[in-house]
């Protein structure tokens, strides 16, 4: 396993699970922004492509002691991505400032090794060609190229928006490598009605996510595996935080 370097900028997403309602606006905005074709059988979650997916969590207790939460899951943009080192053709890499794990569709051969390697199920395979209902292809965006069948895709944290923000900064004579907070925000974060998602540079103290990620309520998914995600979650509820990783029964009691 190769080691990955640290970057001066680390784009991070922080989701407040206590504010998430599971409404799905993030999923839909992502779907539309990144040209994921609608499918009639979209309720079959084992086949639909959801760069952003919402898991359901429950404390496992019976009504009325039950508590539940939704957990939106984009690509974790792991510091040590399980998916990158396995790709046989360098179709995916973590090689850019910001630490976004890239996925290049024209390079991908569709072996799905990365799909298997990712414990978050963040990678999706195009089982079929993307077909929009007749005419609806007029509403696809310039942001992401359409993917043919047989390649893998995943959340890019709307990398194109970063490119646009840099472009804008250049035109305004500003430094494209020192973007102010909220100059670059992924579609899901922008769309979230209850403001459950925060986005920014985890390393920049001027960005809110920097502080949020250090909050005692913050946690990441499956930290014990050593994937070192750039996506954080916060919750004031202990049971929610505990479900972020596997806990041995003995430890749970302690």
């Amino acid at each position: 396993m190769s080691e990955f370097k640290e970057f001066a900028t680390k784009w991070g997403l922080v989701v407040d699970l206590d504010k998430c309602t599971g409404c799905g606006a993030c999923m839909i905005s992502c779907q539309v922004e990144n040209n994921i074709a609608p499918v009639v059988e979209a309720s079959n979650k084992l086949r639909s492509l959801n760069w952003m997916w919402i898991f359901e969590m429950t404390n496992g207790k019976a009504f009325p002691e039950n508590d539940a939460a939704f957990l939106p899951r984009p690509c974790m943009q792991c510091g040590k991505p399980p998916c990158v080192s396995v790709c046989p053709v360098v179709a995916t890499d973590k090689n850019e400032e910001g630490g976004i794990v890239s996925q290049i569709y024209p390079r991908c051969i569709g072996c799905r090794y990365c799909v298997g390697a990712c414990p978050y199920h963040a990678r999706y395979f195009n089982w079929f060609d993307p077909i929009w209902p007749e005419g609806m292809e007029k509403a696809i965006t310039p942001h992401a190229s359409t993917r043919p069948r047989g390649v893998v895709e995943k959340c890019t944290l709307c990398h194109h928006r970063w490119n646009y923000a840099k472009e804008k900064a250049r035109q305004e004579g500003k430094d494209p490598s020192a973007l102010p907070e909220n100059a670059y925000v992924p579609a899901c974060v922008e769309a979230c009605p209850t403001g459950a998602m925060y986005f920014g540079d985890l390393k920049n103290p001027k960005h809110k996510v920097h502080e949020l990620a250090k909050s005692p309520n913050a946690f990441r998914l499956l930290e014990k595996l050593g994937t070192n995600p750039q996506v954080y979650y916060v919750s004031a509820r202990e049971w929610v935080r505990k479900q972020g990783d596997n806990q041995l029964p003995a430890k749970e009691k302690a």
């Binding site: 084992l46 086949r47 195009n126 079929f128 060609d129 069948r149």
Partner: peptide
């Protein structure tokens, strides 16, 4: 048609 014709899926 694509690998969708098999029974493989996202998992």
């Amino acid at each position: 048609n694509g690998l969708g014709m098999s029974n493989l899926d996202n998992y």
